[in-house]
Amino acid sequence: MNIIVCVKQIPDPEAPPASFKIDPATNKVAPPPNIPPVISPFDEQAVEAALRIKDAGGAKITIISLGVNLLRDVVKKPLSMGADELILLEDPAFADGDSWATAYALAMAIKKVGAYDLILCGRQAADWDSGQVGSCIAEILGLPQITVAKKLEVRDGKVKVERVTADGYDVIEAGLPAVVTVSNELGTARYATIKGIMAAKRKEPIVWKPSDIGVETAKIGAAGRRVKMQKLFQPVREGKCEVITGENEEDAAANLAKKLAEVKLL
């Protein structure tokens, strides 16, 4: 069983909203100072999904991450959680692609890895929230896709997935190889173990450049974009909250009820 998980390094989405800034000169998000980047949480959950399959019946888990300035401590986290190999597509030519350009490079890297039964991605990266890379990889490789999974089970050459829907979930099955994108409903990803951290320290990632995976540079990164960004801005929040007080919390609560009755919201 060979599992490939695609993960992305992003600015920490748990950083306080006040620290979020856009640099108007570059039309880019300025990374919050003193807050290190993280693996996108949905991708961590995809790693968790792979590890649960490994726990249940054994698997080799290969992590692929695409980007620039990939901090080794950050991108090695899946290794310290229990993944086996780490491949980095690290080159300026890979950077700033849209979903299509990114998925194309990832799909070509997956082809180069060769042995894969299951490809996992987060349902979306928590920076651009595009939510398409998994589907694009499936389309390029001609594989079945199941998106927004909360539970996966691999048996008899098939993957059975619980896919989150608006009012519950669908149970969907596909033959392997297949692409599955993982949602937060899967549950919290495990912590790295001390043993895992030590093992990850000793393991060096494999770094591939565009020429290593045979991609045309016109089709990857910023050059390969089909979707163009015209503007990036922060919506204005009004912030006109009327704070209801009282002698104590109970009193304040009663005053809130009175206030709501007064403005006919009760």
Partner: peptide, 29 residues
Amino acid sequence: NIFKEARFGVVGDWKKIIPAFQAKAKELL
């Protein structure tokens, strides 16, 4: 951050606020 979006707010422990709010709302209704 929720107070930036809210029209009304109460600062405190929900365990104390919710029962008191509910009792008063019940009375008013």
